[in-house]
Design a protein around this nucleic acid. Sequence first.
DNA 1: CTGAAAGCGCTAACAA
DNA 2: TTGTTAGCGCTTTCAG
Lengths: 340, 340
Amino acid sequence: MGTRSVRVREPSMNDVARHAGVSSQTVSRVANGLDNVGESTKERVLASMRELGYRPNSAARALRSGRFRDIGVAMFTLSSYGNMRMLDAITQAASELGYSLTLDLMREPTQRAVSGAVTRLLDQGVDGIVMMIEAELTDSAMAELPAGLPVVVNTSTARTDYPVVDGDQAAAGRLATEHLLDLGHRTVWHVPGPVSSYSAMRRRDAWAATLRAAGREVPEVLQGDWTAESGYRVGLSIAERDDITAIFASNDQMALGLMRALHEAGKDVPGDVSIVGCDDTTESASYWPPLTTVHQDFEEQGRQAVHAVVAEIENGPVTPARILAPVWLVERSSTGRPRA
Amino acid sequence: MGTRSVRVREPSMNDVARHAGVSSQTVSRVANGLDNVGESTKERVLASMRELGYRPNSAARALRSGRFRDIGVAMFTLSSYGNMRMLDAITQAASELGYSLTLDLMREPTQRAVSGAVTRLLDQGVDGIVMMIEAELTDSAMAELPAGLPVVVNTSTARTDYPVVDGDQAAAGRLATEHLLDLGHRTVWHVPGPVSSYSAMRRRDAWAATLRAAGREVPEVLQGDWTAESGYRVGLSIAERDDITAIFASNDQMALGLMRALHEAGKDVPGDVSIVGCDDTTESASYWPPLTTVHQDFEEQGRQAVHAVVAEIENGPVTPARILAPVWLVERSSTGRPRA
DNA sequence: CTGAAAGCGCTAACAA
DNA sequence: TTGTTAGCGCTTTCAG
């Protein structure tokens, strides 16, 4: 303990080979778990490895084999609940498949930032990339990707030449809206996420379509930007209106802000206004009141994304699939029938 | 354009050298930004690089130089607000210093899990490791680390032979408690995080010490486990008691759960009970009521951790520092004077 | 089942 | 300022 001195040379395969009295080739075979090695030889090699504290040199291996067994993840802020959950699932899935994970965060939603992230990841030597981007810049940024690089994108885009994994945002918008309509509300108002977001756009479209299909009026949108703060501002702006009895917020944070504004204005949720969120963050069950929301299976999305890149890495280009993770409504206490 | 075909060989330094009519050594110098290269030669090489789409091979570089310019992060769940923020800051700081980041998540708080993570990171070839662990297993697990490996730990432990970066948990507990006492509360109750957590323990100790220093009774602890759910359960269990007027919860989520239980029981916050949280999560400002809490500078911690490992990587062992990031109280609406 | 030879792409050390 | 030589630790290929 406490002897954290200068770094010494790590033992190499040659060292192990010499120690075990075999060729370095045999050591390599043992290290890679190949079966064309005699039982006793294998034992001997394993023993030497242990004794010497051998650790394979991934640089040498990668140099030789051209594979790093490393996948890169490029995404914007971790602070979004969905991103965080997906990253969690991605790390787990990657490690289960024997891949390590290199993370690169993009600071701004610009094409430059995306290219920068991809470049850094590529320079680093990743075998494939999972891109978690949801803005419009996707397409042009993706055009720069080197041909043949396995890539999986989180949010659907116009392009269709790489696998896409996403939640079923259309269903999310529909489920939330139908729930409110079923409760007897005349129509449903909507607080969408930023216009640059594909997910937000898809939820919004589904909300409007559901309303139209039911023959209801489609109110003007109450623009938000994903933050609770924006939900709060929206809430303040409509707190005095008695004609608004049902609101679908495109994420839980905005729903939270909305409820805070309503509380401050002395309105009751769900007595005066029913609120539905989206994502089902861990804490939404503890909001006041506990939030009715649409659950997204981010874990599933993360897992699918990794499986898709790894499949591409190991088996070459596949016909790009488009995977939609299911969503479902979680009914809690922020919704109810409108007052008679 | 959908031409994601088979991968072709990437151009090497030799290719660039041939193309530019110089030696591969010169290309290397240009690639590394050394200044002992003629201006015109440099231009020519740069042009060739661009034309051929040259990208340095990090495996070869790492093999030769023994450095990957990669730091590993081992941590438990991403779902804790603090971890998430720190990881965010760590990624940013690493990329600013020209390091890439490999992430490994440990699934359970066991020694085995920690060793596993370290092993994977080491096999991957990281130059240093930032460990974000806060349980007691730290010490024994750390004992296994190879000598000479730059390591920074997030939570203080008994060991002192590697740099430690942490928030000032003692100040957090003191600030929260003093705030409530200053408001006129007779004493302050406490909902600590799990007993296995060092941070929780330190906040708790500070809470008790502050109470004792003020000559107040130190009530029994209301045990939580970081989740909002546990805060809710605690809240339910004390909802009927009129002698409890002030509670310090060791994180914001537990405070949220606590407030939900109090609301359900018809109690007013802060009218009947004042609540202080800890961490200052983004959403705590939108809780109902907006939460008074102790702000932790997780960004600072992440940044410091990276700077510390990188310093160790680049300059060799340093005398291990113990860095405490400052905390401060953020007063919002969940605290007030007790009823007369 | 085992070994020898060659070389992946790069940089450190030296020479010109 | 530029080039030459060698070799990092491993795996691929080919021989035995």
